[in-house]
């Protein structure tokens, strides 16, 4: 799996297709997060925006390889594992991006609750913000896995489905991402920063199931 991940990561980096989602994410944060704003509020925003970015990165990874090149890799390692490597590479990229964003946002934000009543130390903010970003990266990966090939093969259906899926994952009640984000935003009012352990477990389970389903389907649907 290490060789597969290394290959996929190199493919992603060199293809430069990661640039648009990363630039868009940076622009989105630059507009939405002003320095000196309450830290937890800003972290909620940072985490929520990561979800569609993760789904987009998955789409880049699973469509980045020409089918014939994918076949060469799949012959050596098995089609399911080759597909899992794509998904995992995208997840790792999203996590890396999320961690960087959370750290920067924590450093530039005001370490206090909304209305500056309660102080929120940066370490506490990080402890709440990092797992929330992880929840969103995981769920974005799940959305990307279920709305890209081999599940949805035509771009015309896959892209709207991905956008809709990402939106629903952020706003639908019962979604771990919504729970994690509203935990941060709500925490910003009270000054308490909850660590979203339950949403994290839920997101991990959902994403594992989505990735397993997508990997199972590779090799069963036409190339």
């Amino acid at each position: 799996m290490t060789a597969l991940l290394r290959y996929q990561a190199d493919l992603l980096l060199r293809s430069q297709r990661w640039l648009p989602p990363v630039i868009l994410y940076a622009a989105f944060l630059a507009v939405g997060v002003q320095s000196g704003q309450p830290v937890l509020d800003s972290l909620g925003y940072t985490a929520a925006a990561l979800l569609p970015v993760a789904a987009w990165l998955v789409r880049i990874c699973v469509t980045g390889e020409p089918p014939a090149a994918r076949a060469c890799v799949a012959a050596a390692r098995g089609p399911a594992r080759a597909h899992l490597a794509c998904l995992l590479t995208a997840l790792l990229a999203a996590v890396l991006l999320g961690v960087a964003a959370v750290v920067v946002v924590t450093l530039v934000s005001d370490p206090a609750s909304t209305g500056h009543r309660v102080r929120v130390p940066p370490a506490r903010a990080l402890a709440a913000g990092l797992p929330a970003a992880l929840v969103c990266a995981l769920l974005g990966t799940a959305v990307g896995a279920l709305t890209g090939p081999p599940v949805l093969r035509s771009t015309g259906r896959a892209v709207p489905a991905m956008l809709l899926g990402a939106l629903l994952a952020v706003v639908a009640s019962g979604s771990p991402a919504r729970a994690a984000v509203s935990g941060l935003v709500g925490g910003s009012h009270s000054g308490r920063a909850p660590v979203p352990l339950l949403p994290l477990a839920g997101a991990a389970l959902l994403t594992a199931a989505a990735c397993a389903a997508a990997a199972w389907l590779t090799g069963r649907r036409s190339p």
Binding site: L11, R14, S15, Q16, E65, P66, A68, A69, A71, C72, A74, A75
Partner: peptide, 11 residues
């Protein structure tokens, strides 16, 4: 495996 047509569109 060697496919019928191999793409060179790899970075």
């Amino acid at each position: 495996y060697v496919p019928e047509r191999f793409p060179s569109a790899l970075p």
